[in-house]
Design a protein around this nucleic acid. Structure first.
Lengths: 146, 146
DNA sequence: GGCATATAGTTAGTTAAGCAACTATTCAAA
DNA sequence: TTTGAATAGTTGCTTAACTAACTATATGCC
């Protein structure tokens, strides 16, 4: 396998993910400006609960690509913020089912709007077909390493 | 601005950067397996010092897209590992110039080889021209938000 | 039934990021 | 020349990530 396939700067950008970092920072700023009092990581958990409420912590791990301790603490903090509740499953008492509170349900439209707005700003000058190619490359990268 | 330009899954991947996260995790595992005792973040600082030794902490902030406290603490930890030294500038005593130790100079070839190897694994099934398009899109995203 | 194994989640310890507030030094303008 | 602003770096606080070790529950095999 050739060791000189990448020029240095390219290598660095791919590994450090400065584009996605920039997107996350911009979205966090919008959250702060809107006084949402929500981190991007917390939002990423709510994101999956808005799709499907009442899933287990393990399912949140899979959905958000995080390990179990990370989800434990994110759920801890979301509980403190009165955004989710842990409810023990009756069929399997090892499992916590995570449910949105009414407070969290209210955040969906506003925060998803800000996320869409951020992506529109990030991609406003990029042709649609290049976005598709970029997405597919990133998906392949993820699949290759998973 | 249209609020429905992105499907949900696409939005999420762009914001959370799961591809670059996967690359960083894979590289970290290679570092650990090779007993390099180095975090990806520490490596990213050394990366710029290998290009140019003896730059200031502020220049490291710009190069690595980190804020000043982050660099302060990364340099703290790199000093503890005997990988860099802070040397106060004689022209401007506010400035710390950061210099690689011989120990850090020895890490360059091995760690850069592992980084290249990781990218080759990540991108092995992706045509060259799609990699170029992906890179350019990510650069535009960064520029749009900077 | 009982024991080994797997699974769900938690806790502890280290590293790192972001923000705000702070010190020290330099520079520039009155 | 002194005073105010800008710059370089540090510290404290909170949130989050990863690893390893842990508890509790469930499952499956004998």
């Amino acid at each position: 396998m050739p060791n000189n396939q990448f020029k240095r700067g390219e290598l660095y950008s791919f590994i450090t993910g400065k584009a996605s970092t920039a997107i996350a920072r911009r979205l966090q700023k919008k959250f702060n400006t809107a006084a949402l009092n929500l981190t991007i990581e917390q939002w990423s958990v709510l994101y999956h609960l808005w799709k499907q409420d009442g899933i287990s912590q393990q399912e949140l791990c899979n959905a958000t690509f995080r390990d179990k301790p990370s989800i434990t603490r994110l759920v801890d903090n979301l509980e403190k913020l009165d955004l989710v509740k842990r409810i023990a499953s009756k069929e399997d008492r090892r499992i916590n089912m995570i449910f949105l509170t009414p407070r969290a349900q209210q955040l969906q439209d506003q925060s998803m709007g800000l996320a869409t707005e951020t992506l529109n700003e990030a991609l406003k000058t990029v042709p649609e077909e290049q976005i598709e190619i970029c997405k597919s490359v990133l998906q392949i990268v993820y699949d290759n390493l998973k």
